[in-house]
Design a protein around this nucleic acid. Structure first.
Lengths: 254, 254
DNA sequence: TCGAAGCGTTCCACGATGCTGAACATTTAT
DNA sequence: ATAAATGTTCAGCATCGTGGAACGCTTCGA
C-alpha cells in the first residue's frame, strides 16, 4: 500500500479489496479493476482466477462479478446467531402490528449491522438494507446496544470511531451521549430523532441474554410525521419493549 | 495442499478455507482450526488477524467466527441480479397462493444456487436454505435452467460435475436426462419426483430474458402426498408458468 | 499448591511464492 | 486497416507468507 500501515497478509487484503470494489462497480473487467486499485493487470488477473476457482467470483459476459457463494457464508454466519433465528419472526410481527419498518441490529467491530428488516404495510421507502453497517451512535438501535455494553467496550468503541455527524441531529458530544445512554439504561428504550437520517424517527430496545449482556437490539422506524405524541412517547416504546421481552424469554429458554 | 492441484494464490485459498471451516465449526480457536486444516498455529493466527482487521472475522469470547460483513457482500451481490429484485415478491405470491414452499434459483459454476425462498402456510419443514448450492440435475429448478442453456454450456456442466445420485430417484443417465430436458423445453415446465430428496416433489419454470437466455428459475415444492394428480400435473404447472411469465414481462420492461 | 497441558501470541530465518512489467493474443473502436 | 483498448501468459526478482520453536498465560488435575 502507500504506507506500511498494515501488518497483515497482503494477498488476502488485496483479494477482499478486489471483491469489494467488484461489488461497488457492479461487475468489472481486469483493467478497470487494476485502475481502481492501482495494481498491475497481471496481479488483478491472478487474484480473479484464484477467486473464481474458489467460486467467490463469477465471470459472465467477459465481466467479473462477486459470486453468490458469499450468500452461503453470510447465511450460515447469520444463522449462527441464536438471536437472529429467534428474533426474526418477532420482528416480522412488530412490523405488521405497527405498519412501519422494523429491524434487528447486532454490533460488530464497533459498528451497527442491520441483520434483518421487515416492512409493514405503511412502511417508508427503503433507506438501509440488510448487511449495512452504520455508526453506532446515530441510531436508536445502536444506542440501545451501546448503553448496555460494558463501560470499557463503550469507551473503546467511541475512541476508535469517534462521533461523526451523520445528520444535523446526530449526537456528537461525548457528554451528551453519556447522559442519553444513562437515560436509555433506565427506560430500556432508545429513540432516534432524525439523528441518522432527516425525516426518520425510531424507537429501539436492547436484547439481553441470560447473563444480562447485550446481544443486539430491535426497532421500529418511520417518517417523523407519523412518529410523534403519544404514539412515539408511549405506544411504540411499549410495543417494542413487549416484543423485546418475548425475545429475551425465548433466548433464555434455549 | 497435498498435491499441487491448484495454481492460484495460496494465501487467498487458505483464507477462504479458514472462513469456511470457521462457519462449519460454528466458531473455533486458533489451535482447533490449525488441526482441522493441518496448518501451524502461527499461519492460522496470521490469517485470522488479517481477516479480523478486514472485519470478515469477529472475535468474541476467545473464539473466532465468520463476521457479518459477508452479509454486506452477499446482499449487494444478490441485489445486483435484476432477477432477484423482480422475482422476490412474485415468489412470495406463489408461496402464498399455493401454501407450499416457493424458491428462486440461479446457476453459478455449474451448480444451482437457492437465491430466495418463501414459505406458504402449509409449507413443509425446511430442507434447504438460501445460499445452498445443489447439483443442477437433481432439481426441477436446476433442470429448468439446464434445459434452456446453450448446448455447449450444458455439456460442459455435465462433464464437469457428472450426474451424481443424490437420492434413489436422481437421473444418472445422460440419455434419460437429454430426453427429459427436451420435454422441458416443449412445456417450459420441469418437475422433480423425489430426485433430490425422498418425499419431496416440485414443479419449476425457467425465466428467460429479452434475448431468450435463461437467467434462473422458480418453483413450488411440497410433500409428495400433496403433489399428485391434477394438482401436480396441471394446476401447479399453470400457476408457476403464470408467475414466470409475469416475471419475464417485468424483466423486459427494465 | 504445584505441575502439566492447553491455549494464543510473538519472533525469526528460510525459501517458496506472489508481485511486477513487458510481450503476447484478441477484440473493439476509429 | 489501423489503433487502442482488452485479457492473458511468461519469467525473474524480491518479497512476504510460512512454520518451527519459544514465550506467556490460563486452565485443568493431582
Amino acid at each position: 500500500m502507500t504506507t506500511q500501515e498494515a501488518a497483515g497478509i497482503q494477498a488476502v487484503d488485496r483479494a477482499f479489496d478486489i471483491v469489494e470494489t467488484l461489488t461497488e462497480l457492479d461487475g468489472a473487467g481486469v483493467s478497470e479493476l487494476g485502475r481502481h486499485l492501482e495494481l498491475p493487470k497481471s496481479t488483478v488477473h491472478n487474484h480473479l482466477q484464484t477467486l473464481e476457482r474458489n467460486e467467490y467470483v463469477v465471470r459472465q459476459d467477459g465481466e467479473y462479478r462477486a459470486g453468490l457463494k458469499f450468500l452461503r457464508v453470510s447465511e450460515t454466519a447469520r444463522n449462527q446467531h441464536e438471536l437472529y433465528q429467534i428474533a426474526r419472526s418477532e420482528v416480522d410481527h412488530l412490523a405488521e402490528k405497527t405498519g412501519e419498518i422494523s429491524a434487528l441490529m447486532i454490533e460488530e467491530h464497533g459498528r451497527g449491522v442491520f441483520v434483518y428488516r421487515s416492512r409493514g404495510s405503511e412502511a417508508a421507502r427503503i433507506d438501509t438494507c440488510v448487511g449495512d453497517r452504520v455508526p453506532i451512535h446515530c441510531t436508536a438501535l445502536g444506542k440501545a446496544i451501546l448503553a448496555f455494553l460494558p463501560p470499557e467496550r463503550r469507551d473503546e468503541i467511541v475512541d476508535r470511531h469517534g462521533l461523526e455527524a451523520v445528520s444535523p441531529n446526530t449526537i456528537t458530544d461525548r457528554e451528551v451521549l453519556a447522559e442519553e445512554l444513562e437515560a436509555i439504561r433506565d427506560r430500556k428504550i432508545a429513540s432516534d430523532d432524525e439523528e441518522r437520517l432527516s425525516g426518520l424517527r425510531s424507537v429501539a430496545a436492547p436484547i439481553l441474554d441470560g447473563s444480562n449482556a447485550v446481544i443486539g437490539s430491535i426497532s421500529v422506524a418511520g417518517p417523523t410525521h407519523r412518529m410523534r405524541g403519544e404514539r412515539f412517547e408511549t405506544e411504540l416504546p411499549e410495543m417494542v419493549l413487549g416484543i423485546a421481552n418475548v425475545i429475551e424469554l425465548n433466548i433464555q429458554h434455549t
